[in-house]
Amino acid sequence: MRVAFLVFVLPLASALGLSRFKHLVTFGDSYTDVVNVGDGGVAWPVYAAGYAHLTLHPFARSGAACSNNITPINSPPVMESQIPAFQAAKLRLPPQETVYTLWIGTNDVGASGLLTGKDPGVTVVDTTACAVDWVRVMYRLGARNFIFQNIIPLQLTELYSATALPSRPWHTDRNQTEWALLMTEMTTAGNAISLLMLRALAPTLRGARIAYFDSHALFTDMFANPARYLNGTAPLNVTGSINGCPFELNGGPVGGACPPQVQGSDRDSFLWFDELHPSEQADRVVAREMVAALRGNTRWATWIS
């Protein structure tokens, strides 16, 4: 079921024109990291920069949460690592020719964060407020054009689905149904909260333009209508993955070894690369829609400022 987020829609092209942008600056986790690439191929920012002829400045890092002060994870967080790395780079990018993106939250709400209660007292309100605060912090550093990407429906991934089996990321006992329900609640609530918070923040940032990219709705549609997005040579698959590895409960890989990855053009038939990460084909779709957002012709992004 697609969850609708009601936004006052402004024509994107009226706010920004693709031709004026020359730089794309990205923050986030493995969904956006261009070095430790989560999709097993080429990350979406590389495709987006190529499609739109932009210079890419990537700061996203695999495994990241928004802040280790909120969700302690042993990876470079947005607030304490990625933003300082951006400052240290001293890029001096022209504000009106640069767009900044953030895609964070998967690890914050996941098995290393809120889902398993590793941080008692921390809620999805805290992790979402941190993500929204990225806009305010980057605004103070001179950014003016933002694209905020919300959390995908993680309950549709192999790791968090109600039918999940033990696998490489998590092969000890769990209640799969409970995980799926909790993930549905946290991603839906977090996205609704982020939209409300961004609406409240936007009027306080003079000259800022903030777009809300509905990754949740896009991936829900890819899951429900794969033929619109997937184009590989194998049967279309939105429940399995290219590089999945089933495990025995509390044991090792079934049969003693992980099965070989799907190869060649068959990979483009899959929505997921592994138990948690989108496939390269899914990332091409994200890149295409991000560029379309800058052109003002995608239903997956709307301006809230």
Rank of each mutant, 00 (worst) to 15 (best):
A287L: 09
P77D: 12
R92N: 15
I152A: 15
A192Y: 01
D274M: 05
G110F: 03
Q155L: 03
N191Y: 09
R92S: 14
A164F: 00
W303Y: 14
N36Y: 06
F273S: 03
G255E: 02
R209I: 13
Y160T: 07
P11T: 10
V7G: 00
D33C: 02
A64C: 10
E185S: 10
E80Y: 06
F146N: 03
F5G: 06
A48M: 09
P246D: 05
P166K: 11
T71P: 01
L271S: 04
C66E: 06
D133Y: 00
P235R: 11
A85N: 12
N36H: 11
T55P: 00
R295Y: 05
G117C: 09
A15E: 15
A65C: 15
G232V: 08
V37P: 04
S81Y: 01
W134C: 04
V7I: 15
Y229F: 15
N69G: 15
N297Q: 11
D214P: 12
R136N: 08
F59Y: 14
D108C: 06
D126L: 07
L24M: 08
N107S: 12
L12G: 15
P260F: 04
H171A: 11
T26G: 09
G105T: 08
V7T: 14
R92L: 10
N68I: 10
E80V: 08
T26C: 11
M183A: 06
R92K: 12
L141N: 04
T26L: 07
L141D: 05
T298R: 08
T157H: 04
T128I: 09
L6F: 07
T204V: 00
T233R: 10
R206G: 08
V35Q: 14
V262K: 08
T220Y: 00
F223C: 00
R209Q: 13
P95I: 10
T188I: 13
Q82S: 01
A234L: 03
C258Y: 11
G28N: 04
L56K: 10
D39Q: 00
A88L: 09
V9H: 11
S14Y: 09
A234E: 01
P169H: 05
T302E: 12
T204F: 00
P235A: 14
D173Q: 14
T239Y: 06
R295D: 02
D108W: 05
A227Y: 02
L114W: 09
G255I: 04
F59P: 10
F21M: 12
A131T: 02
A189K: 15
Q281A: 14
L54W: 13
W272L: 13
T32F: 04
L54M: 07
L156A: 01
P153K: 12
N145P: 02
I210L: 07
G38I: 09
V35H: 11
P226Q: 02
P166V: 05
P76G: 10
I304E: 10
A48F: 07
N36T: 08
H53F: 11
Y160C: 06
F213E: 05
W272I: 05
T127H: 09
H171M: 06
A89C: 06
P94I: 05
V78T: 11
G251V: 09
P95F: 06
N237F: 08
I242Q: 08
D126W: 07
Q155N: 13
T101F: 03
T127C: 01
L181D: 14
A13G: 13
Q87R: 13
Q263W: 00
G296R: 00
T298C: 04
H57G: 05
R2A: 13
